[in-house]
Write a protein that binds this DNA or RNA. Structure first.
Lengths: 181, 181
DNA sequence: GAAGGCATGTAATGAGTTACATGATTAT
DNA sequence: ATAATCATGTAACTCATTACATGCCTTC
């Protein structure tokens, strides 16, 4: 364990959490993240190569290198890592949720564009949120029988969120079309 | 205008958008952002010092330095900057929305914590989203009479989102309490 | 056996965060 | 006139994004 304890961030806990299920390579992490929390919180694949290396340096994870071949690196969580995750889960959660939505930014500044732009934006966003909601429904059906109960719950929150935003844009399109028929 | 055109990002457009209303110092930007889009997409104040400087380098914004005193720097948008904003508003929007919510991450990994942690998490998150929703209601009342129409709309989306997530956690708390009475 | 995609990684750059510093203004 | 807070900025560090590079496996 290194003495200078770095402050862990969200990426750290995602990696620790994933590794709590089983040892994994960076590629495994990438796959798992891509199908689950990557839906709402995206990580570039290089982050999933960098972060485990940092956790090794921190003494929370250990690395075993495949003999010969491609010398792939597999990461396993150490007791200190499990402890870090537990203590994070037990700590208060006061950070503000961030919703990074380019569509919202464009709506905010829509006065500097045309009416056409805005209508197009609303249609794009409506479609995108609807598709994502549908994706969640499928995903839920696929995993509901065997996945971790809380993972399924997470998906349900995602679904509610997408439905809500989808509805917003639908109402908004209607409002716009009512004005300029 | 510089020849190597950097790819602008969300921060860039926020600054360009704000400056489209009127010239401003970094501090002005910080205030405006803090009261509006900062609610869902936060920017550290240093970003609002760095980004205008980059936009100057890009030839999209110009800087005038106060004579004497604190030599404060005021930024104004140039025609090329307005054009960049317009063209962004006219372009398609296909980026996925990111919802960076620590609560969601903790829910996802809740199996590695205790039931108590989870209940506490649900209560924290419920409270936080409720308060934010209430804040939006007030904010809307304050600005609805004079603010830009689309800015108000943005706030409405924020409000719907908060209500939706608030409800999720409320239902979830009920579910948990139903199990371990 | 060549092509295409999956798996694995690194380097370079750019951006974001945190901490530090200090000048101005207001309130007591 | 001192404290507190607002306003203004920079430096150091960490993190994220993008591009590059290439090995391995499947399929045709």
């Amino acid at each position: 364990m290194s003495d200078r304890t770095r402050k862990l961030n969200a990426t750290s806990y995602v990696v620790l959490g994933m590794l709590s299920y089983a040892p994994a390579t960076s590629y495994d992490l990438k796959q798992f993240v891509g199908n689950t929390i990557g839906n709402f919180w995206a990580f570039a694949h290089s982050q999933l190569y960098d972060e485990p290396a940092r956790l090794v340096r921190d003494g929370l994870v250990e690395e075993t290198v495949e003999e010969g071949g491609r010398r792939r690196r597999t990461y396993s969580i150490l007791p200190a890592g499990r402890e870090a995750l537990r203590s994070w889960l037990a700590s208060g959660t006061h950070e503000q949720t961030e919703v990074r939505d380019t569509g919202l930014l464009k709506l905010f500044f829509a006065s500097f564009g045309t009416d056409q732009d805005l209508l197009q934006l609303a249609r794009d966003r409506h479609k995108s949120h609807r598709e994502r909601a549908e994706g969640y429904v499928e995903q839920r059906a696929e995993i509901v029988d065997y996945a971790d109960r809380w993972q399924v719950k997470t998906l349900e929150l995602g679904l509610r969120y997408e439905r809500c935003v989808e509805q917003f844009w639908a109402d908004f399109i209607e409002e716009l079309e009512g004005e300029a028929p």
